[in-house]
């Protein structure tokens, strides 16, 4: 009886392999985590286009993501925003940055930022056109229209 109890008390599992495995898992998740994904509104149903290709920024990392739902409303990190004011604000920031980096840059010049439009597949063109025109009025010229490469879900 006493021998059995003492062996119980001394049982110490070797936690090192488990710790190794857990750290490997933590490392994996740390590497694959993508905080930029939060700016994507995953409730939108994008159109499906087989020929759409993954986004190539061609060295330009500045992306301006616009999530537009079927009612033409702009959502940023899940919060509805006034579309015109938001785009104007973003353009102001970009212009200020460009002016700081390049003194020859003047208002009205083409902005290097790529506007990424993620619109719901049923959004009417008139609402989308409003967004595109607003962007163009503020100097954005480069656009990327997002689409799914294959049908997902039911």
């Amino acid at each position: 009886m006493s021998a059995s109890m003492s062996s119980h008390a001394n049982a110490e599992p070797n936690l090192t392999p488990m710790l190794d495995m857990v750290f490997q898992l933590v490392t994996f998740f740390m590497l694959v985590i993508n905080f930029k994904g939060a700016q994507l509104d995953l409730s939108l149903k994008l159109p499906v286009l087989g020929s759409a290709r993954p986004l190539d920024t061609e060295g330009h990392d500045e992306l301006f993501v616009l999530n537009i739902d079927s009612q033409g409303k702009l959502k940023v990190y899940g919060i509805e925003k006034d579309m015109k004011a938001y785009i104007a604000g973003e353009a102001r920031v970009t212009i200020a940055k460009m002016t700081f980096d390049n003194p020859k840059f003047k208002k009205g010049d083409e902005l290097p930022t790529m506007v990424v439009i993620r619109a719901d597949r049923v959004t009417p063109f008139k609402l989308l056109d409003d967004v595109i025109k607003t962007c163009q009025e503020h100097g954005f010229r480069r656009f990327s229209l997002k689409a799914m490469t294959k049908v997902e879900g039911p």
Binding site: R53, V116, R142, F143, M148, T149
Partner: peptide, 13 residues
């Protein structure tokens, strides 16, 4: 939350 596989069409408007 794995990001969906999205493609895009680049346009110069």
């Amino acid at each position: 939350r794995p990001a969906p596989i999205e493609g895009q069409l680049s346009l110069n408007l």
